[in-house]
Write a protein that binds this DNA or RNA. Structure first.
Lengths: 152, 152
DNA sequence: TTTCATGTAACAACGTATGATACATGAAAC
DNA sequence: GTTTCATGTATCATACGTTGTTACATGAAA
Protein backbone atom coordinates (compact mmCIF):
# COMPACT_ATOMS: atom_id res chain seq x y z
CA UNK A 1 0.00 0.00 0.00
CA UNK A 2 1.18 3.47 -0.77
CA UNK A 3 1.99 5.17 2.50
CA UNK A 4 1.36 8.76 3.38
CA UNK A 5 4.70 10.43 4.11
CA UNK A 6 3.60 13.99 4.78
CA UNK A 7 4.40 13.96 8.47
CA UNK A 8 7.86 12.60 7.77
CA UNK A 9 8.33 15.14 5.00
CA UNK A 10 7.20 18.13 6.98
CA UNK A 11 9.42 17.28 9.93
CA UNK A 12 12.35 16.99 7.60
CA UNK A 13 11.57 20.36 6.09
CA UNK A 14 11.02 22.26 9.27
CA UNK A 15 14.24 21.01 10.83
CA UNK A 16 16.13 22.16 7.79
CA UNK A 17 14.48 25.55 8.15
CA UNK A 18 15.54 25.67 11.77
CA UNK A 19 19.15 24.90 10.82
CA UNK A 20 19.14 27.58 8.16
CA UNK A 21 17.75 30.25 10.45
CA UNK A 22 16.41 32.51 7.71
CA UNK A 23 13.64 32.42 5.12
CA UNK A 24 13.78 29.52 2.68
CA UNK A 25 11.87 29.34 -0.56
CA UNK A 26 9.68 26.42 -1.59
CA UNK A 27 12.20 25.77 -4.32
CA UNK A 28 15.04 25.39 -1.84
CA UNK A 29 12.97 23.16 0.40
CA UNK A 30 11.91 21.07 -2.57
CA UNK A 31 15.57 20.54 -3.34
CA UNK A 32 16.17 19.34 0.23
CA UNK A 33 13.33 16.90 -0.13
CA UNK A 34 13.97 15.80 -3.68
CA UNK A 35 10.49 16.81 -4.68
CA UNK A 36 8.52 19.61 -6.25
CA UNK A 37 8.01 23.15 -4.95
CA UNK A 38 4.26 22.84 -5.37
CA UNK A 39 4.23 19.77 -3.18
CA UNK A 40 6.11 21.73 -0.54
CA UNK A 41 3.59 24.59 -0.63
CA UNK A 42 0.72 22.17 -0.49
CA UNK A 43 2.10 20.43 2.57
CA UNK A 44 3.23 23.63 4.29
CA UNK A 45 -0.21 25.19 3.88
CA UNK A 46 -1.44 23.28 6.92
CA UNK A 47 1.43 24.53 9.05
CA UNK A 48 0.78 28.09 7.97
CA UNK A 49 -2.93 27.87 8.80
CA UNK A 50 -2.03 26.47 12.20
CA UNK A 51 0.38 29.35 12.79
CA UNK A 52 3.60 27.36 13.06
CA UNK A 53 5.18 29.02 10.05
CA UNK A 54 4.62 32.14 7.98
CA UNK A 55 5.13 32.69 4.29
CA UNK A 56 6.10 35.80 2.34
CA UNK A 57 5.74 36.48 -1.35
CA UNK A 58 8.15 38.41 -3.50
CA UNK A 59 11.87 39.10 -3.29
CA UNK A 60 13.51 37.70 -0.18
CA UNK A 61 10.29 35.86 0.60
CA UNK A 62 9.81 32.24 1.55
CA UNK A 63 9.02 30.29 4.69
CA UNK A 64 9.93 31.13 8.29
CA UNK A 65 9.25 29.27 11.52
CA UNK A 66 6.95 31.37 13.70
CA UNK A 67 7.37 29.68 17.08
CA UNK A 68 9.98 28.38 19.43
CA UNK A 69 10.87 24.81 18.52
CA UNK A 70 10.40 23.85 22.15
CA UNK A 71 6.74 24.79 21.85
CA UNK A 72 5.99 22.59 18.83
CA UNK A 73 5.46 18.88 19.28
CA UNK A 74 5.37 16.14 16.67
CA UNK A 75 1.70 15.85 17.46
CA UNK A 76 1.21 19.47 16.45
CA UNK A 77 2.85 18.66 13.15
CA UNK A 78 0.67 15.61 12.69
CA UNK A 79 -2.45 17.67 13.28
CA UNK A 80 -1.16 20.43 11.02
CA UNK A 81 -0.81 18.09 8.06
CA UNK A 82 -4.43 17.12 8.52
CA UNK A 83 -4.16 14.27 11.03
CA UNK A 84 -4.26 11.68 8.27
CA UNK A 85 -5.57 8.20 8.91
CA UNK A 86 -2.89 6.31 10.78
CA UNK A 87 -3.70 2.72 9.92
CA UNK A 88 -3.55 0.87 6.66
CA UNK A 89 -5.82 -1.81 8.08
CA UNK A 90 -9.48 -1.08 8.29
CA UNK A 91 -12.89 -2.61 8.66
CA UNK A 92 -14.59 -4.06 5.65
CA UNK A 93 -17.79 -2.21 6.56
CA UNK A 94 -17.90 0.61 9.05
CA UNK A 95 -21.44 0.24 10.36
CA UNK A 96 -22.48 -3.31 9.55
CA UNK A 97 -25.92 -4.83 10.08
CA UNK A 98 -24.34 -8.21 10.57
CA UNK A 99 -23.81 -9.01 14.26
CA UNK A 100 -20.80 -11.15 13.43
CA UNK A 101 -19.16 -8.23 11.76
CA UNK A 102 -20.07 -5.93 14.62
CA UNK A 103 -18.20 -8.22 16.98
CA UNK A 104 -15.22 -8.31 14.64
CA UNK A 105 -15.15 -4.56 14.20
CA UNK A 106 -15.29 -3.93 17.91
CA UNK A 107 -12.38 -6.24 18.59
CA UNK A 108 -10.23 -4.63 15.92
CA UNK A 109 -11.31 -1.07 16.67
CA UNK A 110 -10.40 -1.53 20.30
CA UNK A 111 -6.87 -2.62 19.50
CA UNK A 112 -6.32 0.10 16.95
CA UNK A 113 -7.81 2.86 19.08
CA UNK A 114 -5.51 1.98 21.94
CA UNK A 115 -2.49 1.96 19.66
CA UNK A 116 -3.47 5.26 18.11
CA UNK A 117 -3.77 6.86 21.53
CA UNK A 118 -0.32 5.58 22.37
CA UNK A 119 1.18 7.05 19.23
CA UNK A 120 -0.56 10.38 19.71
CA UNK A 121 0.74 10.52 23.24
CA UNK A 122 4.27 9.78 22.13
CA UNK A 123 4.15 12.33 19.36
CA UNK A 124 2.92 14.86 21.90
CA UNK A 125 5.87 14.17 24.17
CA UNK A 126 8.54 15.00 21.59
CA UNK A 127 9.23 18.60 20.60
CA UNK A 128 10.95 19.82 17.48
CA UNK A 129 13.70 21.05 19.77
CA UNK A 130 14.22 17.46 20.90
CA UNK A 131 14.48 16.34 17.29
CA UNK A 132 16.89 19.16 16.50
CA UNK A 133 19.05 18.16 19.46
CA UNK A 134 19.06 14.58 18.23
CA UNK A 135 20.20 15.78 14.85
CA UNK A 136 23.01 17.82 16.41
CA UNK A 137 24.22 14.75 18.27
CA UNK A 138 24.26 12.81 15.04
CA UNK A 139 26.05 15.62 13.29
CA UNK A 140 28.73 15.83 15.93
CA UNK A 141 29.27 12.07 15.84
CA UNK A 142 29.35 12.12 12.07
CA UNK A 143 31.87 14.95 11.90
CA UNK A 144 34.17 13.05 14.26
CA UNK A 145 34.34 10.26 11.73
CA UNK A 146 35.72 12.63 9.15
CA UNK A 147 32.62 13.16 7.09
CA UNK A 148 31.10 16.61 7.10
CA UNK A 149 28.26 16.75 4.61
CA UNK A 150 24.75 16.71 5.99
CA UNK A 151 22.90 18.28 3.10
CA UNK A 152 19.51 17.52 1.48
CA UNK B 1 -6.00 6.21 1.77
CA UNK B 2 -7.50 2.95 0.70
CA UNK B 3 -7.41 0.61 3.65
CA UNK B 4 -6.64 -3.06 3.57
CA UNK B 5 -9.63 -4.95 4.96
CA UNK B 6 -8.51 -8.54 4.60
CA UNK B 7 -8.12 -9.19 8.29
CA UNK B 8 -11.58 -7.82 8.96
CA UNK B 9 -12.96 -9.83 6.05
CA UNK B 10 -11.37 -13.10 7.01
CA UNK B 11 -12.55 -12.85 10.60
CA UNK B 12 -16.05 -12.23 9.39
CA UNK B 13 -15.89 -15.23 7.11
CA UNK B 14 -14.45 -17.68 9.58
CA UNK B 15 -16.97 -16.80 12.26
CA UNK B 16 -19.75 -17.43 9.79
CA UNK B 17 -18.17 -20.78 9.01
CA UNK B 18 -18.08 -21.58 12.71
CA UNK B 19 -21.77 -20.75 13.06
CA UNK B 20 -22.68 -22.91 10.10
CA UNK B 21 -20.74 -25.90 11.34
CA UNK B 22 -20.38 -27.60 7.96
CA UNK B 23 -18.54 -26.96 4.70
CA UNK B 24 -19.33 -23.67 2.98
CA UNK B 25 -18.52 -22.87 -0.62
CA UNK B 26 -16.66 -19.77 -1.73
CA UNK B 27 -19.87 -18.70 -3.39
CA UNK B 28 -21.78 -18.81 -0.12
CA UNK B 29 -19.05 -16.98 1.73
CA UNK B 30 -18.88 -14.37 -1.00
CA UNK B 31 -22.58 -13.79 -0.50
CA UNK B 32 -22.01 -13.26 3.24
CA UNK B 33 -19.32 -10.76 2.45
CA UNK B 34 -20.99 -9.06 -0.49
CA UNK B 35 -18.03 -9.79 -2.66
CA UNK B 36 -16.73 -12.20 -5.26
CA UNK B 37 -16.00 -15.92 -4.81
CA UNK B 38 -12.55 -15.46 -6.32
CA UNK B 39 -11.72 -12.83 -3.73
CA UNK B 40 -12.77 -15.27 -1.03
CA UNK B 41 -10.50 -18.02 -2.40
CA UNK B 42 -7.65 -15.60 -2.74
CA UNK B 43 -7.96 -14.45 0.86
CA UNK B 44 -8.61 -17.93 2.25
CA UNK B 45 -5.52 -19.29 0.54
CA UNK B 46 -3.35 -17.94 3.34
CA UNK B 47 -5.45 -19.63 5.99
CA UNK B 48 -5.29 -22.92 4.13
CA UNK B 49 -1.51 -22.78 3.82
CA UNK B 50 -1.25 -22.03 7.52
CA UNK B 51 -3.46 -25.02 8.30
CA UNK B 52 -6.37 -23.19 9.89
CA UNK B 53 -8.86 -24.32 7.28
CA UNK B 54 -9.09 -27.02 4.61
CA UNK B 55 -10.73 -26.90 1.23
CA UNK B 56 -12.38 -29.63 -0.82
CA UNK B 57 -13.20 -29.65 -4.50
CA UNK B 58 -16.27 -31.20 -6.09
CA UNK B 59 -19.75 -31.99 -4.83
CA UNK B 60 -20.24 -31.23 -1.16
CA UNK B 61 -16.90 -29.47 -1.15
CA UNK B 62 -16.01 -26.07 0.22
CA UNK B 63 -14.22 -24.69 3.24
CA UNK B 64 -14.00 -26.18 6.74
CA UNK B 65 -12.28 -24.94 9.88
CA UNK B 66 -9.49 -27.34 10.82
CA UNK B 67 -8.78 -26.28 14.40
CA UNK B 68 -10.50 -25.51 17.64
CA UNK B 69 -11.53 -21.83 17.71
CA UNK B 70 -9.92 -21.54 21.11
CA UNK B 71 -6.56 -22.33 19.54
CA UNK B 72 -6.70 -19.60 16.90
CA UNK B 73 -5.94 -16.01 17.82
CA UNK B 74 -6.58 -12.85 15.85
CA UNK B 75 -2.84 -12.61 15.50
CA UNK B 76 -2.79 -15.99 13.76
CA UNK B 77 -5.35 -14.63 11.33
CA UNK B 78 -3.32 -11.48 10.78
CA UNK B 79 -0.25 -13.53 9.99
CA UNK B 80 -2.26 -15.88 7.79
CA UNK B 81 -3.42 -13.04 5.56
CA UNK B 82 0.21 -12.10 5.05
CA UNK B 83 0.81 -9.74 7.99
CA UNK B 84 0.13 -6.69 5.84
CA UNK B 85 1.70 -3.34 6.67
CA UNK B 86 -0.24 -1.89 9.58
CA UNK B 87 0.37 1.81 9.19
CA UNK B 88 -0.74 4.21 6.52
CA UNK B 89 1.93 6.67 7.63
CA UNK B 90 5.47 6.03 6.56
CA UNK B 91 8.85 7.58 6.13
CA UNK B 92 9.58 9.60 3.06
CA UNK B 93 12.85 7.71 2.59
CA UNK B 94 13.66 4.49 4.37
CA UNK B 95 17.45 4.73 4.58
CA UNK B 96 18.27 8.40 4.15
CA UNK B 97 21.73 9.91 3.85
CA UNK B 98 20.49 13.09 5.42
CA UNK B 99 21.15 13.20 9.17
CA UNK B 100 18.09 15.35 9.72
CA UNK B 101 15.93 12.73 8.13
CA UNK B 102 17.63 9.98 10.09
CA UNK B 103 16.64 11.74 13.30
CA UNK B 104 13.08 12.18 12.04
CA UNK B 105 12.78 8.56 10.97
CA UNK B 106 14.04 7.26 14.27
CA UNK B 107 11.54 9.32 16.23
CA UNK B 108 8.62 8.16 14.10
CA UNK B 109 9.79 4.56 13.82
CA UNK B 110 10.06 4.31 17.57
CA UNK B 111 6.48 5.43 18.11
CA UNK B 112 5.11 3.19 15.40
CA UNK B 113 7.08 0.13 16.44
CA UNK B 114 5.82 0.43 19.99
CA UNK B 115 2.25 0.77 18.79
CA UNK B 116 2.59 -2.17 16.43
CA UNK B 117 3.90 -4.35 19.24
CA UNK B 118 0.90 -3.34 21.33
CA UNK B 119 -1.53 -4.27 18.59
CA UNK B 120 0.18 -7.58 17.89
CA UNK B 121 0.02 -8.39 21.58
CA UNK B 122 -3.66 -7.56 21.77
CA UNK B 123 -4.48 -9.57 18.68
CA UNK B 124 -2.61 -12.47 20.20
CA UNK B 125 -4.68 -12.28 23.36
CA UNK B 126 -8.04 -12.69 21.64
CA UNK B 127 -9.12 -16.07 20.26
CA UNK B 128 -11.75 -16.74 17.66
CA UNK B 129 -13.71 -18.45 20.42
CA UNK B 130 -13.74 -15.14 22.30
CA UNK B 131 -15.06 -13.40 19.22
CA UNK B 132 -17.70 -16.07 18.71
CA UNK B 133 -18.80 -15.69 22.32
CA UNK B 134 -19.07 -11.95 21.82
CA UNK B 135 -21.23 -12.55 18.80
CA UNK B 136 -23.49 -14.90 20.76
CA UNK B 137 -23.96 -12.25 23.43
CA UNK B 138 -24.95 -9.75 20.77
CA UNK B 139 -27.27 -12.26 19.17
CA UNK B 140 -29.02 -13.01 22.44
CA UNK B 141 -29.44 -9.31 23.18
CA UNK B 142 -30.67 -8.67 19.69
CA UNK B 143 -33.20 -11.50 19.80
CA UNK B 144 -34.61 -10.10 23.04
CA UNK B 145 -35.44 -6.92 21.21
CA UNK B 146 -37.64 -8.82 18.80
CA UNK B 147 -35.32 -8.93 15.84
CA UNK B 148 -34.02 -12.29 14.78
CA UNK B 149 -32.08 -11.92 11.54
CA UNK B 150 -28.34 -12.04 11.72
CA UNK B 151 -27.50 -12.99 8.19
CA UNK B 152 -24.75 -11.86 5.80
C1' DT C 1 7.45 47.48 -14.66
C1' DT C 2 10.13 43.63 -14.05
C1' DT C 3 11.36 39.86 -11.21
C1' DC C 4 10.65 36.73 -7.63
C1' DA C 5 7.88 34.03 -4.75
C1' DT C 6 3.61 32.15 -2.91
C1' DG C 7 -1.45 30.26 -3.79
C1' DT C 8 -4.15 27.16 -6.13
C1' DA C 9 -6.55 24.63 -9.63
C1' DA C 10 -6.28 21.04 -12.83
C1' DC C 11 -4.31 17.12 -14.68
C1' DA C 12 -0.93 13.11 -15.14
C1' DA C 13 1.55 9.18 -13.29
C1' DC C 14 1.86 5.51 -10.20
C1' DG C 15 0.82 1.91 -6.81
C1' DT C 16 -2.32 -0.93 -4.28
C1' DA C 17 -6.71 -3.11 -3.27
C1' DT C 18 -10.52 -5.13 -5.00
C1' DG C 19 -13.69 -7.02 -8.55
C1' DA C 20 -14.44 -9.85 -12.67
C1' DT C 21 -13.60 -13.18 -16.39
C1' DA C 22 -11.68 -17.28 -18.12
C1' DC C 23 -10.01 -21.63 -17.93
C1' DA C 24 -7.63 -25.69 -15.73
C1' DT C 25 -8.01 -29.27 -12.13
C1' DG C 26 -10.10 -32.50 -9.22
C1' DA C 27 -13.97 -34.93 -6.82
C1' DA C 28 -18.55 -36.58 -6.35
C1' DA C 29 -23.05 -37.81 -8.55
C1' DC C 30 -25.50 -39.92 -12.09
C1' DG D 1 -17.45 -42.37 -18.26
C1' DT D 2 -19.62 -38.12 -18.50
C1' DT D 3 -21.76 -34.43 -16.21
C1' DT D 4 -21.85 -31.26 -12.51
C1' DC D 5 -19.91 -28.81 -8.84
C1' DA D 6 -16.25 -26.64 -6.60
C1' DT D 7 -11.55 -25.01 -5.90
C1' DG D 8 -6.95 -22.91 -7.97
C1' DT D 9 -5.03 -19.39 -10.42
C1' DA D 10 -3.70 -16.22 -14.03
C1' DT D 11 -5.05 -12.13 -16.13
C1' DC D 12 -7.35 -8.04 -16.85
C1' DA D 13 -10.50 -4.17 -15.31
C1' DT D 14 -11.88 -0.73 -11.93
C1' DA D 15 -11.44 2.42 -8.23
C1' DC D 16 -8.98 5.39 -5.38
C1' DG D 17 -5.33 7.89 -2.84
C1' DT D 18 -0.67 9.90 -3.08
C1' DT D 19 2.56 12.32 -5.33
C1' DG D 20 4.44 14.89 -9.32
C1' DT D 21 3.74 18.46 -12.90
C1' DT D 22 1.97 22.30 -15.51
C1' DA D 23 -0.32 26.54 -15.77
C1' DC D 24 -1.80 30.72 -14.26
C1' DA D 25 -3.26 34.25 -10.75
C1' DT D 26 -1.69 37.22 -6.89
C1' DG D 27 1.26 39.98 -4.24
C1' DA D 28 5.75 42.13 -2.78
C1' DA D 29 10.29 43.88 -3.47
C1' DA D 30 13.89 45.58 -6.63
Amino acid sequence: MKRNSRLSAILHVILHMAERGKAMTSEELALCMQTNAVVVRRTMAGLREAGFVTSQKGHGGGWVIARDLRDITLRDMYDAVGAPEMFALGNRTETPQCLVEQAVNQALDGAFAEAEALIIERLGSVSLADLAADFHRRFAAHAQHGNSHHAT
